[in-house]
Computed example of a mutant assay.
Amino acid sequence: MIENGIFHAKTHHGLEALLQAELERAGAEYIFALPGAVRFQAADEQLYRFLLQTRLTTGLELCLSQPLDITQTDLPGLVASVDWTEVLPVHSTYRVQAFEDGVTGVGLQKLATELERGIGQVFQQKFEAEPKVVKEENEPEFVVNIQISSNGSCQIMLEAGGDVLQRRGRLVSPKHSVLSPAMAAGLIMLSDWDGESPMIDPFANDGVLVLEAARYAKKRTPLFEDDSLRMKKWRTFRHALWKKMREEVVDQLRDDVDWIMGFDSNPDNISRIQFSARAVRLNNNIRLRVSKPNMLNYPKMTGHIMTAPPVDVNLRLLGDFARKTKMSAGGYKMGLFSSIANLDTVVGMKPEKNRLLEYNGRPFSFMEFTIFNKSRAGRKPSARSKADETSTPGRKLK
């Protein structure tokens, strides 16, 4: 079922080229970028290598059928497009979901139920038994997705990744987050930060950026922490090969990272970040303090300031933060991720780069600036001494 399978990897709009590069490094073939996704073909070894190195994937599906014209395909044709006895073990549990451009509805749920009934009939005719359909609140072994696009194309997919690709050990509800872990990783990879110099987030909020920065600097990828992929339940999954390749990741990890810094004016936010960092064993790699963003004094060295101010951020505060940063962070690079249309005007700086991205259906920009101030610009320090020179006021929480 999986050998040289065709897969569909999802990501955020604007990060497709970075995801494509990850697939190329893993040795995948026939890579084709789509809006918010990349399609590719890979054997087991190339697929596992990709999964163990990806930072950008938010979902992964195996293509079970060829693209179909939904207007020309009836239910028997939909059922016959897949050899279900090669996909689902007879004593397994599964569920079918249907989406049109990522959104479901009553009519689509009815289509999913009809396909479940058709799959059951296939098994009854061959084995006089069938896999069990589980309800929404339960966790099935297999999830089949009917993906319909607005142009009428329809394809049946098997969920291969699952929630683990989006969750990444996060303990804060996504609805309260400024950005997702995959988007945070994308911003880091879009920037010029090499993981070897200080990275500072003045609006740390729920800590997604500093957590992803710590992973990046440690050369630790998300699935190293939690590899509970749906595809590990497939009977064709090669567990011994996965374990061997996962152990190879351990040899690349760094333990000396301590130059990631996060600041927030809300003590509760700092406490939540500390809790999340401990949960994924990154608490020794991130320095956290309670401080207003416009009250920071930056380490006297070169580094990166990268942040995603809250959507409802006070524009006067954001402007004060930018003015203070220009005065005290000479030699630093700064990246701002925001949906504010005139962000460069608010901060009073001209961006060197401005990348247009999409997040939660809204347009965002990721602007990068270089801060020039000869009196503060310094040499790049060694990794061991990077974070020791900070004199930032604020209260550190234990």
Rank of each mutant, 00 (worst) to 15 (best):
F7Q: 11
H8T: 08
K10L: 15
H13N: 14
E16Q: 13
Q20Y: 11
G27E: 10
I31E: 12
P35W: 08
Q41L: 08
A43Q: 15
A43Y: 12
Q46D: 14
L51I: 11
L51W: 10
T54Y: 09
R55V: 07
Q72H: 10
L75N: 06
T85C: 15
P89A: 03
P89D: 05
F99G: 05
E100N: 10
D101F: 05
D101W: 01
G102S: 07
T104F: 02
G107N: 12
G107F: 03
Q109W: 05
L111F: 06
L115W: 02
G120M: 01
F127P: 03
A129V: 00
P131H: 00
P131S: 01
E137H: 13
E141P: 00
E141F: 01
F142S: 08
V143R: 13
V144S: 02
Q147P: 00
G152Q: 07
I156Q: 01
L158S: 07
L158C: 07
G162H: 06
L179E: 07
A184N: 07
G186K: 06
L190G: 04
L190P: 00
L190D: 04
D192Q: 14
D194R: 10
G195C: 04
S197P: 00
N205P: 00
G207N: 08
L209F: 07
A213W: 09
Y216W: 13
K218G: 00
K218I: 03
R220E: 15
R220W: 02
M231N: 02
R235H: 13
R235P: 04
T236F: 13
A240H: 12
L241N: 09
L241S: 13
W259I: 00
G262H: 03
F263Q: 00
P267V: 02
D268N: 14
N269H: 15
I270K: 06
I270W: 02
I273W: 10
S276M: 08
V280M: 13
R287G: 08
R289H: 10
L296V: 01
K300G: 07
K300T: 09
M301E: 15
I305P: 05
M306H: 05
M306E: 03
T307Q: 01
A308G: 07
P309K: 05
P310Q: 11
V311H: 08
D312G: 11
L315E: 13
R316Q: 14
K324Y: 00
T325F: 03
A329F: 02
G335L: 04
L336Y: 04
F337M: 11
V347Y: 01
G348Y: 07
M349T: 01
N354Q: 14
E358V: 13
Y359A: 01
Y359L: 12
G361A: 06
P363G: 02
F372R: 11
A377T: 12
S382A: 10
A383H: 06
S385T: 10
E389D: 08
P393E: 04
G394S: 00
K398L: 08
